[in-house]
């Protein structure tokens, strides 16, 4: 890392170096690894539970309860990917994002390392962008960890093959895999709103724990608000409202309405809270 030789301020290479540094720091933390481990364990648990329950041979038609797609897992392991994402998206995934995003700046401030980062000629805006990019990469990695773990578990425990879409048409296994990847990307994109929110909260405080707790608390509050029917006028603006629309990718033809609404809403949250975080962070007195 040739930080000292870097051209002052403006070089994109320098930014890349900072970004790489951030990534390494984040992914080397035990906390991050533990979070990813928990996420990887969820599909394994779901898979094993379904396997044990239907141990006497595939019965099919499990009544329709539980997370989405669960009744199809016994017939096609690829559905475990969708079930696992549907099971982790409401809580596990955003909680992990909340922890990482909340810790991003407040954690540095808490440990007293933030001012050293700012002594380096990074600029606050660039540091913030780097932090956000790191959190986004974590979103993607976390989602892929769930998906890959689900795919491996599904392949080991259940048969694979052609799959039936929600609309009743058939698609080949390769296309199914493609859709699974697309779904993972959409799920990762669905988390950008929480990530921006967490980063904003992180700029408000010097305590990493407080930022994490606030972000996760907001997440739970929003999820509860989303369940109250009297507040239905508010629901389309809650960041979690369209999360499960990723299942629309399994229809034939794909139903884009809710998907685009979801992505648009996430972009809006990212813009609002990203700029709020910027406004706060660039004007804040850093003394820790």
């Amino acid at each position: 890392m040739s930080r000292a030789e870097a051209v002052r301020g403006a070089s994109p290479l320098w930014t890349l170096g900072l970004f790489r540094n951030e990534l390494l720091t984040t992914f080397r933390r035990w906390r991050t690894l533990a979070l990813l481990g928990v996420l990887a364990a969820v599909p394994v648990l779901v898979g094993v539970a379904v396997r044990i329950e239907t141990g006497d041979g595939p019965s099919g038609g499990g009544g329709g309860g539980g997370p989405a797609f669960i009744s199809q897992i016994t017939n096609n392991g690829l559905f475990l990917v969708f079930t696992a994402l549907a099971a982790t998206l409401p809580f596990f995934l955003p909680m992990a994002i909340g922890v990482i995003a909340g810790d991003a700046l407040a954690g540095e401030a808490n440990a007293g390392t933030l001012r050293y980062l700012l002594v380096a000629p990074a600029g606050r805006t660039r540091l913030l962008l780097t932090k956000y990019a790191t959190v986004m990469v974590f979103c993607l990695v976390a989602t892929l960890v769930v998906a890959v773990s689900a795919l491996i578990t599904g392949a080991l425990l259940f048969p694979l093959g052609d799959l039936t879409t929600l609309s009743g048409t058939r698609i080949g296994f390769a296309e199914g895999l493609g859709r699974a990847l697309l779904i993972a990307l959409v799920v990762a994109a669905s988390l950008t709103g929480v990530a921006a929110l967490g980063l904003f909260v992180s700029t408000l405080t010097h305590s990493g724990i407080a930022a994490m707790a606030t972000t996760v608390g907001l997440l739970i509050t929003v999820q509860i608000l989303d369940q109250i029917p009297q507040l239905h006028a508010l629901h389309p603006y809650l960041f979690s409202h369209h999360w499960l629309s990723f299942a629309d990718l399994m229809r034939e033809p794909v139903h884009w309405d809710d998907l685009t609404k979801n992505l648009g809403l996430q972009a809006l949250y990212a813009a609002v809270f990203g700029s709020a975080a910027w406004a706060r962070f660039t004007t804040k007195d850093i003394n820790a």
Binding site: P58, S59, G60, G61, Q72, T74, N75, N76, P159, G161, L163, T164, S167, G168, T169, R170, E252
Partner: peptide, 13 residues
Amino acid sequence: ASTFEFTPPKGAK
């Protein structure tokens, strides 16, 4: 044409 083709998925009741 594939829209109207349907074969019951494996294991479906």
